[in-house]
Amino acid sequence: KTVHVDGVEYRFNNPEEADKFVKRLVKEKNGNVEVRGDTYHVE
């Protein structure tokens, strides 16, 4: 899984860790998540 945040790319081998990371980011930023294939885009 890959997570894109503000143009920075984070790669996770463990999908659960990627999910936790995304949830935390969305809370912090009050942002939205767009999923494209295996990539999460957080804005």
Rank of each mutant, 00 (worst) to 15 (best):
K1Q: 07
K1D: 02
K1P: 10
K1E: 04
K1F: 15
T2E: 02
T2D: 00
T2I: 14
T2W: 08
T2S: 08
T2P: 02
T2N: 04
V3C: 13
V3S: 01
V3F: 03
V3H: 01
V3E: 00
V3A: 00
V3N: 00
H4F: 15
H4K: 13
H4T: 13
V5R: 01
V5A: 02
V5G: 01
V5L: 05
V5N: 01
V5K: 00
D6Y: 06
D6T: 01
D6C: 15
D6G: 06
D6K: 03
D6E: 03
D6W: 05
D6P: 01
D6H: 04
D6S: 02
G7M: 01
G7L: 02
G7K: 00
G7Y: 02
G7N: 03
G7D: 02
V8A: 02
V8Y: 05
V8M: 06
V8R: 07
V8F: 04
V8I: 09
V8E: 02
E9Y: 12
E9N: 03
E9G: 01
E9L: 12
E9Q: 08
E9R: 08
Y10T: 01
Y10P: 00
Y10Q: 00
Y10V: 02
Y10E: 00
Y10F: 06
Y10W: 03
R11K: 09
R11D: 01
R11M: 04
R11A: 04
R11N: 03
F12R: 00
F12H: 01
F12G: 02
F12S: 02
F12K: 01
F12L: 00
N13M: 10
N13I: 07
N13P: 09
N13R: 09
N13W: 04
N13Q: 10
N13H: 06
N14W: 02
N14I: 03
N14D: 12
N14T: 14
N14A: 02
P15I: 11
P15N: 05
P15T: 10
P15K: 12
E16C: 14
E16H: 04
E16F: 06
E16T: 04
E16W: 07
E16L: 04
E16N: 03
E16G: 04
E17M: 02
E17F: 00
E17D: 11
E17Y: 00
E17N: 01
E17S: 02
E17H: 01
A18I: 03
A18P: 01
A18N: 00
A18E: 03
A18W: 07
A18K: 03
A18D: 02
D19A: 11
D19K: 10
D19P: 02
D19I: 14
D19W: 15
D19R: 12
K20M: 14
K20W: 11
K20Q: 13
F21W: 03
F21S: 00
F21C: 05
V22I: 13
V22K: 05
V22P: 00
V22T: 05
V22M: 12
V22F: 12
V22L: 13
K23C: 15
K23I: 07
K23G: 06
K23W: 04
K23E: 12
K23D: 08
R24G: 08
R24F: 09
R24L: 11
R24K: 12
R24A: 13
R24I: 08
R24M: 11
R24D: 12
L25T: 03
L25M: 10
L25D: 01
L25P: 00
L25I: 10
L25N: 02
L25A: 04
L25S: 03
V26S: 07
V26G: 03
V26Q: 10
V26A: 10
V26H: 06
K27A: 14
K27L: 13
K27G: 09
E28W: 13
E28N: 08
E28T: 07
E28S: 10
E28L: 12
E28C: 15
E28H: 08
E28R: 06
E28A: 08
E28Y: 13
K29L: 15
K29A: 09
K29V: 11
K29H: 15
K29F: 15
K29T: 12
N30D: 08
N30L: 06
N30S: 09
N30I: 05
N30F: 10
G31M: 14
G31A: 14
G31I: 13
G31F: 14
G31S: 09
G31T: 10
G31D: 06
G31W: 14
G31V: 15
N32L: 11
N32Y: 14
N32D: 05
N32H: 13
V33Q: 03
V33G: 04
V33P: 05
V33Y: 11
E34Q: 12
E34C: 15
E34K: 10
E34L: 13
E34I: 15
V35Y: 11
V35F: 10
V35N: 05
V35I: 13
V35T: 06
R36G: 06
R36M: 09
R36A: 07
R36C: 15
R36L: 10
G37S: 06
G37F: 12
G37E: 08
G37K: 05
G37D: 09
G37A: 05
G37P: 07
G37T: 09
G37M: 09
G37Y: 12
D38Q: 06
D38R: 04
D38F: 06
D38S: 05
T39F: 06
T39L: 08
T39V: 11
T39I: 10
T39W: 07
T39D: 09
Y40P: 05
Y40M: 07
Y40S: 07
Y40V: 12
Y40N: 05
Y40L: 10
Y40W: 12
Y40H: 05
H41D: 09
H41P: 06
H41Q: 10
H41G: 06
H41F: 15
H41E: 10
H41L: 13
V42P: 06
V42N: 10
V42G: 08
V42R: 04
V42K: 07
V42D: 08
V42F: 12
V42Q: 08
E43W: 15
E43A: 11
E43G: 11
E43R: 12
E43M: 14
E43K: 12
E43V: 14
E43F: 15
E43Q: 12
E43H: 13
E43S: 14
E43L: 14
